[in-house]
């Protein structure tokens, strides 16, 4: 293991983050390399001070108790809210079905299927009058009336 690799691993070595084999290799290198030992020593000092400082600055007052009522109630309300789109969809479907089956829609369907009045037939004829080479037959006219 070379010096560059060992210096990269010093931090992990200090925090006990290395496997047995790598740790032994680092230790072997440190025994034989005074320069790396110096780096190791500096890193050890710095990390130790950093860790102690971070811990020293911890608050004496621990956090206020968690408001569990708020936590648990939010989940229940969320569950209820999740059902709202489903209810809305069912409601729309029911309204649609009701309208289709209601007397108003039945009346509309009858109106569409009922025999055409004379006025509408005239309108259709005037539309087809634009095609002089292919005058609409009587059957075609009826078909178009039904279609329109």
């Amino acid at each position: 293991m070379n010096c560059k690799k060992v210096r990269q691993l010093v931090e992990s070595y200090l925090l006990g983050d290395l496997g047995t084999l790598t740790r032994e290799k680092v230790e072997d290198h440190l025994k034989n390399c005074p320069e790396c030992r110096k780096v190791y020593s500096q890193e050890e000092t710095f990390l130790s001070l950093l860790k102690k400082s971070l811990n020293a600055n911890q608050q004496a007052n621990w956090p206020l108790p968690i408001n569990w009522g708020l936590v648990f109630s939010s989940k229940e309300s969320k569950r209820y809210m999740r059902l709202v789109p489903s209810f809305a969809l069912i409601l729309i479907l029911l309204v649609g079905i009701f309208l289709l089956l209601s007397p108003i829609s039945a009346g509309l369907i009858n109106k569409i299927n009922s025999p055409t009045e004379e006025g509408s037939a005239v309108t259709i004829v005037s539309r087809d009058a634009g095609y002089p080479h292919n005058p609409p037959s009587e059957e075609g006219l009826n078909y178009r009336i039904g279609f329109y």
Partner: peptide, 8 residues
């Protein structure tokens, strides 16, 4: 190499 006990 001394064993490091600081970093638990």
């Amino acid at each position: 190499m001394k064993k490091n006990n600081l970093f638990i």
